[in-house]
Design a protein around this nucleic acid. Structure first.
Length: 541
DNA sequence: GTATGATCATACTGCTTGCTGGTGCAAGC
């Protein structure tokens, strides 16, 4: 079992125990196990018993539960709490903004046992009779449930990618004809609802019947759809004879885009289809509406290997899993030439944000490491919280000591568009701000983020020489790729940042690069494709 | 349930916000 899978078991256990009012310290322990597992760079399945026992917060009971998961795929304690909780209530626990205390009241006092029943009760105005509930709480719960329902049965690209790869390999092994990804998956959309494949004419659609992990729900001469491994929808489109590449190109692009492509008989490649349709060939990720009439030089598009520096990473000084030294050595080994370390600032108490004293300690260590590690540089950065009024949370004399500053919002995420926009603009106008971090605060499929007037944000960045982060964490991918053309047009540089909380987190850069390519970003428009000297020079411009 | 300092007992990120009910609490980061 992977760390992420194990982590989700502990996270569910903690939530269910909270719902059943168990010992809060046990709950805290399981929540900590969840966060630790998500940050770790080594799979616990590959670790020895002694190595597992050495991890802080992993005592005998936790080790035992991990062992059980790895050996049987199940955890008996979790099973016990699952059996005590109706399935609909277990689903409610996953809705953001609705905590265990409120859910318990809804379940025990109102008798609600599912999302559907809860929405019905809200429509009958029945929540306001409950203790601790009022009209505002009722309508905010309704909003959150509706958002949750809209996002159901969708996947973030990073979580679907390995499954889609596995499915593609499985189909390829069953047939001799050509098979390729298509649709939103091939366009590398950040949120996707199904795996789509295009297969060449001649595909024998009976081979999927009675397959143990593929469940076909409808099967015609042109389209097969069904479920893979119980919870992944798929569609297999069968190309008409001699039109494989035309069909593939059409099934990959968005609707309006595909309408411009012609049926080219017996084409040997997608490039030929584009050429004979009178269009420039674009890689799949760019085949979206908003690029319709734009011109791109696809050889200039950013690639993963163009990124020179790892910007935005957390170490054990705040809430990261790995030490500063381990992170730096890892980045060097991966071929990067610099690391911009950005632990949390002092007001981020929940993430052990750095006091001024801890900052000085970190700077001493950075100086020593920079002496010791050759051909590599660690830059002194910080992810400074943007406070409610838009100010940063260190005094100017401290802010001026950093090599660069990422300013991000981590609290009060519910401002309206005017207040949120002016808050961010004030942070952009701060003379010490270099980069605006995860600008909208969204979490894909979980939280929409606060509303922002993005044009004003981009204008303010252009006026103040501030770059915008494309946070590469697959849950964020924030800024959204669709805003990249506007930023680029106004000369604002984009920094593709992993927001790494461990060595492994550095890998997320690849998802940021995919999103940046969707936005049509060239390597010259990306801040951290610059070598370290140019990077620093660009900041000081 | 775990870590720590002393052998069983004790402490465990903390602050802000907004809602509800007239001060306390849930939820979020």
């Amino acid at each position: 079992m992977t760390n992420l899978e194990i982590a989700s078991h502990f996270s569910e256990l903690a939530s269910l125990m909270e719902l059943h009012r168990e010992n809060p310290f046990k709950i805290r322990t399981y929540q900590n196990v969840n966060t630790t597992l998500k940050k770790m760079s080594t799979e616990v399945a590959d670790m020895s018993a002694a190595e597992l026992a050495a991890i802080k917060g992993f005592g005998a009971a936790v080790q035992d539960k991990i062992r059980q998961l790895n050996e049987t795929g199940e955890m008996s304690t979790l099973k016990k709490y699952q059996d005590m909780t109706p399935p609909g209530i277990r689903e409610l626990v996953k809705v953001r903004g609705l905590g265990p205390k409120k859910i318990r009241v809804l379940w025990k006092d109102l008798g609600v046992e599912s999302i559907g029943e809860l929405l019905y009760a809200i429509n009958e105005n029945r929540l306001i009779e409950l203790n601790g509930f009022g009209l505002k709480t009722q309508s905010s719960i309704k909003e959150k449930l509706e958002y949750f329902n809209r996002q159901r049965h969708k996947y973030r690209y990073a979580s679907l990618e390995p499954v889609a790869m596995e499915f593609w390999e499985l189909i390829k092994a069953l047939t001799d004809v050509k098979v390729k990804w298509s649709g939103a998956l091939r366009r590398r959309a950040q949120v996707i609802d199904k795996i789509e494949l295009v297969v060449e004419h001649g595909f024998d659609n009976s081979i999927l019947n009675n397959h143990e992990i593929i469940n076909v729900t409808s099967n015609s001469a042109f389209l097969i759809d069904g479920m893979y491994r119980e919870n992944y929808s798929f569609e297999i489109h069968i190309a008409p004879e001699s039109l494989y590449y035309s069909f593939l190109a059409k099934m990959t692009g968005s609707d309006t885009y595909s309408a411009r492509l012609k049926d080219i008989d017996s084409a040997d490649s997608e490039e030929e289809v584009f050429l004979k349709s009178g269009l420039t060939f674009w890689p799949p990720e760019l085949r979206e509406e908003i690029h319709f009439d734009q011109k791109f030089d696809s050889s200039e598009l950013i690639k993963e290997q163009d990124i020179k520096g790892v910007i935005h990473a957390h170490s054990t000084y705040s809430d990261g899993f790995d030490s500063l030294k381990a992170l730096a050595l890892h980045c060097k080994k991966q071929g990067f030439t610099y690391l911009g370390i950005t632990d949390h600032s002092q007001s981020a108490v929940y993430a052990q944000g750095l006091s001024i004293e801890s900052l000085e300690k970190q700077w001493d260590e950075i100086n020593q490491l920079n002496q010791a590690i050759s051909d590599f540089q660690i830059l002194k950065g910080i992810e400074s919280d943007i406070l409610n009024d838009g100010s940063l949370d260190y005094p100017p004399e401290v802010l001026s000591s950093f090599d660069f500053i990422i300013a991000s919002i981590h609290s009060v995420l519910n401002m309206d568009i005017e207040r949120a926009t002016s808050r961010v603009i004030k942070a952009i106008e701060n003379p010490y701000t270099s980069i605006i971090g995860h600008p909208t605060g969204r979490l894909l499929l979980a939280r929409p983020g606060y509303p922002l007037d993005f044009e004003k944000i981009i204008d303010a960045c252009a006026a103040n020489d501030v770059s915008i982060e494309l946070n590469a964490n697959p849950y964020r991918l924030d800024m959204d790729w669709s805003h990249i053309p506007m930023a680029v047009e106004k000369g604002v540089m984009i920094s593709i940042n992993p927001d790494a909380h461990s060595m492994r987190g550095v890998e997320h850069i690849k998802y940021g690069v995919l999103a940046a390519r969707k936005g049509g970003l060239y390597r010259s428009q990306c801040l951290n494709t610059l070598e370290v000297d140019q990077f620093l020079k660009q900041l000081k411009k």
